[in-house]
């Protein structure tokens, strides 16, 4: 068991927390040698809509790490001040949620502060502003990257526990644990992989829609191949989610069983 996790850790360290942007052809190259025809077909379909992929390390934090980078990069490129203000308000709401749940402030405040610092720094025009190279550098620096991942874990856990009645049936489908046990054992510890429950909770808590594109070996009965995706749309009325109309997610992640990477549309 210990040996297994040691091997996994060693493998994971071969790629940085957040990789470079690569053309989508690099994904196809991965499956060239003896790959399944279904996968290659699906990648072909993907390449009609998506231009590039950015890989993240498979250390169990890949969903949160992908979300971190994709979100901050979006703000850096769009300079959307209104979005920053909106998300800040939601972050403050998450802070109050954790306080109400009885988390001592000092256990989470450093993680909140570090995320807000990153959020502020991707907005240009101040002394603290950073470039996209610097964003990549910080995302690879454990002392920043892991703190932001942990911030998301706190936010996710708070949201699940706040709306435990809503999340309970989904959690029961995954494990026999109670909502609180689930948060303690599968959300808050670093390296615990994310599931639908985590993504839904984070998307709802921050009011940020997320598109997840699924790439696996499945195909339809009649042999036709298509690529499915699911949009996580923040529930209306929960926090400041900007209304219930169909939103176009600006964060797209590629899911392959057990792992998330970032996708870039054309």
């Amino acid at each position: 068991m210990q040996q297994q996790s040691a091997i996994q850790a060693e493998e994971a360290e071969k790629i940085p927390f957040v990789g470079d942007k690569e053309p989508l052809s690099s994904l196809a190259a991965e499956y060239k040698a003896g790959g399944s025809p279904v996968l290659l077909e699906k990648i072909k379909i993907l390449s009609e809509q998506y231009a590039a992929i950015r890989r993240t390390r498979g250390d169990g934090n890949c969903f949160f790490r992908s979300f971190m980078f994709a979100y901050l990069e979006h703000i850096l490129e769009s300079q959307d001040r209104a979005e920053v203000d909106r998300v800040r308000a939601n972050v403050e709401e998450c802070r109050r949620t954790l306080q109400k749940l009885g988390y001592p402030e000092f256990t989470f405040e450093d993680f909140f502060a570090l995320f807000l610092e990153q959020l502020e720094s991707v907005i240009q025009g101040s002394e603290a502003s950073i470039s996209d190279e610097e964003l990549v550098k910080r995302s690879r620096d454990q002392s920043v990257s892991d703190y932001v991942v942990m911030f998301f874990r706190f936010v996710t856990s708070g949201e699940i526990r706040k709306r435990s009645e809503f999340f309970e049936p989904f959690i029961l489908g995954l494990t026999s644990a109670s909502v609180e046990q689930f948060c303690k054992s599968a959300v808050e510890p670093m390296g615990e992989e994310s599931d639908h429950v985590h993504i839904t909770a984070l998307s709802d808590a921050l009011g940020v829609p997320i598109r997840v594109v699924y790439l696996d070996r499945s195909s339809c009965d009649n042999g036709s191949v298509s690529v499915n995706h699911h949009d996580f749309t923040p529930v209306a009325g929960n926090n400041n989610s900007g209304g219930s109309e169909a939103v176009n997610p600006f964060i797209t992640l590629l899911y392959r069983p057990g792992h998330y990477d970032i996708l870039y549309p054309k």
Binding site: T107, F108, F111, R153, K184, G191
Partner: peptide, 13 residues
């Protein structure tokens, strides 16, 4: 004890 190993999180003190 699991929280001193895999199940640790900064929520503990």
């Amino acid at each position: 004890l699991d929280i001193l190993k895999n199940a640790w999180s900064p929520a503990w003190t």
